[in-house]
Amino acid sequence: MSSARVAWAIARREFASLFRVPVGWLVLALYAGLWGGMFVQFVLVPGAPATLRPLFATAAWLMLPIAPAISMRLVSDELRTGSYELVATSPASDFVLAMGKFLGAGLFLLAMLVGTLPLVGVLLVVSDPMPDVGPMLAGYLSVTLLGVLFLSVGLLASTLTASQTLSFLGAMMALFVWLLATTAGRSRAPEGVAEVLAMLAITDRLEGFAKGVIDTGDVAFFIVLTGWFVLAASVCLSVRRWS
């Protein structure tokens, strides 16, 4: 219980600090701008069905620069300024530290997604007949799961370097390679490898959500991988103590 409180204290600080620095507001503006542009271009089309599916289907690519931008300062900035020494010497395990950081970034992601809700309102107002709410809810769930997965990868990158730039680029490159390998790369890979890549394909799973289908296997995929990356980040923090 005490560990949970410590993790929550770290999460609240991370969440609040993202609103105290320009990068947090830039990320919010960038994401809202990307969604707004996509919304006008592909959703507000006269005669087209009222759905946010184009946004959810491309969520992975939209999130590619966003999640690393949120996560890049989680640990890297503390390593750079030396404030990590204060956190690391407090009576909290490395897993609690990693979890707190991850939760803080996750809360910011949720705030970012809340900022896109006016677009849903616009769609509901201008559409006749009313759009189906189910796929929208499933879509938002998918973006949330995708976002936290990407944040966990970003958190891991952030534990590896004191440079925010390297953390950002490292996470973005890793995610880009992941997306590319499991989409375009899959068709050119040998059969065995292609099967593994298919299992790791994020975009395939997002398509199901975009159609309004919530597959527990897909949900588990995101949760398990997210947990794995957060755990890996905590292991990296522990390794820092021994290096």
Binding site: S17, G82, L86, T89
Partner: peptide
């Protein structure tokens, strides 16, 4: 051990935005 120690690191690094 960590609970029993109050620590001031060199240059007192901290969160300037708080």
């Amino acid at each position: 051990v960590r609970r029993s120690i109050g620590y001031l690191p060199e240059s007192a690094p901290t969160y300037g935005e708080m």
